[in-house]
Design a protein around this nucleic acid. Structure first.
Lengths: 204, 204, 204, 204
DNA sequence: ACATACGGGACTTCCCGTTCTT
DNA sequence: AAGAACGGGAAGTCCCGTATGT
């Protein structure tokens, strides 16, 4: 009686629902019943426990699935170099914003529950955030060297640029409007300008 | 028998305790009893309700007191201009990081509980964050104009710089280590470099 | 994993704990939390309310269970007659003291809370105390008639003898020592002497 | 403006009110406000604290005043001997019932709060109850010796008779009706009969 | 997979003892 | 002496995580 197209398995529907709700309301305020309802199960029936041992287990599974997906993913770095600083920075920023937007739910959860699940957060940070930073810093180092500015502090500059990107996206997600009324296009262009002028000097 | 130095009133002790605990554990995980105990009252006695109508009321009072304090404060802008872009940026960044550090507890709470108390967060954002952004953007506009770059997007640049600062501080607070191993000195210098090169061109 | 011997149901554990504590400290001084803790539940968790509607409800259930048990019980009267006044009085007194001792907790509670729960106490008195009095008075009437003393006030004598027994036990329970240093054996013998001499005259 | 007849001092009015209320409702259920109101003070004003340090202090003062009064009192023993056992027993029982009735409030309180104020109760018991027992037992010993029954257990008989008296009064006070429907006259006569027959044999 | 039962945590309310101010 | 303020204890309720029976 089930169609030929496999329906999403209950387990995955539960994870999807949980991530959405955790992001919306926080881990504590989301009840098992909420998750069950959102996953199409009968609320407060305990049906979730057929698939997960506990509430925490749902969160762990969500993170695990997410990390697995990300690790299998192509990053912007794989597309470099483009031979032009402005193009490369623009790509980097756009790709970064887009990634952050796609991962917004998980990132929000991790950020908020950092103190409740320090181990989960630390592991995530270790496996993904640091890798992203390394990739970006490597690219920066190369770009600066190519433009005769090897003495510049590539790591610090990466921290600045990535921080600006992450914060921009966070603000958009939190307040549902771009900070300072600066839309994404202006943000990307300004960031590119800043980087280009830094590596290339006044002769832009 | 009470000394000449007035003891901290219970109401304030409660607010202090609550802010500390909300920041540490989150709003939901902090119980009235925890707050009472930390404020020197008897836990689970309900004594807190002699001073506040509800748990939420405590948070509102904390924000209110905080905002009042901040509004009465001198900002870095009051010390401008210093006549030198590097000096000014350095002052701005240092002062910003310091302020963020002092307000870390409240900011952490606001960020985490943004969805539970949207009105509180919005009001805070309205009354403080936007003002800070305006001040910084005004300064940027003036600085860019003075250096013959009035066409630059001052607002967008401000968003970038402030975002980088806020994010840097957030990361330090969350993971208890500077992002990318970049200490504060390097961070400040790199940000100053970036700004100076942007406004002054390559002849630094 | 649960053994073959059924554990005492929570409801009964609560009643047992409550009776013990009510007797020890009184109804008011015993908190729901105390009862929960003594019944193996988590104190102040409210778990008791899964089994009883209120604190008073626990007391009522205890009385109810107790009365039910007592009503199903064989009394000393069922063993009469023994054909000898001394033997019968001795049996009666011994059995009475023993019963009172077994019911000490409930009786102490009833006595102390008489004014707070007049209806409970009255119902208990009606269903048990009066019945016991009637049984004893009937026996006395018969014994007196058999010994040619039908004119004696059997009811009044029963009030005296039962009163002495009840009070003796009460004192023992309250002060944890027999009144006047008179141990149980001496008490029983003296009471038997008194009764025997009364019904049989000086020719004892 | 105060009349020539000294009004009862507030302190005494408080004690009277407290004893009455403690007996009616028990110590815990009687609030300071209740006592103040009953003493003609404004309830919950704290005016009681002008006269007593605490609630417990009121009870102690009541006991103290009571004991002082009793110790100054003539007892039935001071009227002995009457030269006739029946007369003496009747006097003893009547006087005992009357005393118990006058002291009913205090005795009720002591009995109920025995476990909460063990020291107070013990001290009362020591100073009054034991003395009464000694007096009665001494009288019994003498009466038995005079009637040629020195071998009888005077202490045990005293425990029985006094116990019957105390219990009779307690029942009357608790249920507001004489136990077994036996009025005071019948009770006194039966107790006298019992005693007379015991000391004098069948030739009554 | 559902419905229900059980147990725990925590908020809030009520009430009361005590103190301070007037 | 009165009134208000403060602090503490505890009842009762709500909600939720989890186990169990069906």
């Amino acid at each position: 009686l089930t169609g030929t197209l496999a329906e999403t398995p209950t387990r995955d529907r539960i994870i999807d629902a949980a991530v959405k709700l955790f992001a919306e309301r926080g881990y504590r305020r989301t009840t098992i019943g909420d998750i069950e309802a959102a996953a199409g199960l009968s609320p407060r029936s305990g049906a979730l426990y057929k698939h997960f041992a506990s509430k925490r287990d749902v969160l762990e599974a969500a993170l695990d699935r997410h990390i697995r997906t990300l690790e299998a993913m192509t990053t912007a770095m794989d597309l470099m170099p483009l031979g032009d600083v402005r193009a490369e920075v623009t790509l980097l920023v756009r790709w970064g914003l887009q990634e952050l937007r796609k991962q917004a739910d998980l990132l929000l959860i991790l950020q908020r529950e950092a103190f409740e699940f320090p181990d989960l957060v630390a592991s995530f940070h270790e496996r993904l955030a640091k890798r992203a930073f390394r990739d970006a810093a490597d690219w920066a180092k190369r770009a600066l060297a190519e433009h005769g500015r090897p003495e510049a502090d590539a790591d610090a500059l990466t921290v600045i640029v990535l921080g600006a990107i992450v914060h921009y996206q966070t603000e958009c997600a939190t307040y549902r409007e771009p900070p300072g009324g600066v839309g994404e296009e202006r943000f990307v262009r300004a960031l590119a300008d800043l980087c280009v002028r830094f590596v290339e000097g006044s002769n832009v």
